[in-house]
């Protein structure tokens, strides 16, 4: 199997030699020492929403993220892939400072949200997290009613003035999350009573009820069955119209389906960034190729 794959890849290199320069880069990247990793591809975009420069993350002495620089473009879906423990979740959690809850975690470098350095001492994490929402790996609705789950964010941030507005926000968010038709007649029932896929969409509704600018999703479908996954993926595609989304996923098909750009992380390094279709059809770095062809991971 493995030799056959190599042959195919070699053949592809030969066949695809459309762009001499690109091929040269790819070959060069394969030859460099595996320890010396500079990001391959263009991590920067023209209209960035978030700008990350030379971000390093340490858990105590452990260097979890090594000098990562990347932009997140406006209204795009950026997928972050990589083997377990590569730091993609850690990096994602830096984007709304969820890592602050980990006592031993230290972040250096710059992360800008619309020109504001979110790691500046003066920045308050509460409004930041209102701007950068998050959906977690495991659906985690509050043990409250469906309505209260969605209404919680708008309520604490004072985004609504009265009950009618709140009702509208809840309905709107549930509709955007594609859950309204399923739960509109039982909003007072506990959110924890929904199925896994519904719970995850409820969490998405809860995140968008605050009207954030960026939504971070940490493997949002890892606990869902294929049908629920498809629903959530459709939802991500729709949400892209209004929001910037960064999604961490182990599922490469998912990354290919929903994202415009893909970033491949490996052991704390950002190995390669590029348009999703290019990454999956023509990875330039050996590690990226090995990962997406399933040689490890």
């Amino acid at each position: 199997m493995a030799p056959a794959m190599d042959t195919i890849l070699d053949m592809r290199d030969v066949i695809m030699g459309k762009d001499e320069a690109e091929a040269a880069v790819a070959t060069k990247a394969r030859k460099v020492d595996r320890d010396q990793r500079t990001t391959v591809g263009v991590p920067f975009v023209e209209e960035p929403r978030m700008i990350c420069r030379e971000v390093n993350v340490f858990y105590g002495d452990k260097h979890a993220i090594n000098n990562v620089s990347i932009d997140v473009g406006k209204n795009e879906v950026l997928a972050m892939i990589g083997p377990s423990g590569c730091g993609k979740s850690t990096f994602l959690r830096c984007l709304n400072r969820m890592n602050d809850t980990v006592a031993s975690c230290r972040v250096t470098g710059e992360i800008l949200l619309d020109a504001l350095n979110i790691y500046d001492k003066k920045v308050d994490v509460v409004p930041l997290r209102a701007q950068v929402g998050m959906v977690f790996q495991k659906p985690n609705p509050f043990p409250k009613s469906i309505f209260d789950n969605v209404a919680y964010g708008p309520k604490i941030h004072g985004l609504v003035n009265n009950k009618t507005e709140l009702n509208d926000v809840v309905e709107d968010s549930l509709k955007k999350a594609g859950l309204w038709n399923e739960v509109s007649d039982r909003l007072d029932q506990p959110g924890t009573g929904l199925s896994g896929g519904q719970q995850q969409r409820l969490c998405i509704a809860r995140a968008i009820a605050v009207r954030p600018e960026v939504i971070l999703m940490d493997e949002p479908c890892s606990a869902l069955d294929p049908i629920a996954t498809a629903t959530v993926e459709d939802l991500i595609t729709e949400l892209k119209e209004h929001y910037t989304i960064v999604i961490v996923t182990h599922n490469m098909q998912q990354a290919a389906r929903v994202s415009q750009r893909t970033a491949y992380f490996h052991l704390g390094d950002l190995v390669e960034v590029g348009p999703t279709d290019r990454i999956f059809t023509n990875p330039r770095h050996q590690l990226t190729e090995d990962y997406i062809t399933g040689r490890f991971g």
Partner: peptide
């Protein structure tokens, strides 16, 4: 109390005190 609840509250922008007193 499961950390997921804590994260959920912090994730929608609840302050520490709100996370504690509400959840």
């Amino acid at each position: 109390v499961p950390p997921s609840i804590r994260e959920a509250a912090l994730g929608v922008g609840a302050s520490k005190m709100q996370t504690i007193s509400h959840h």
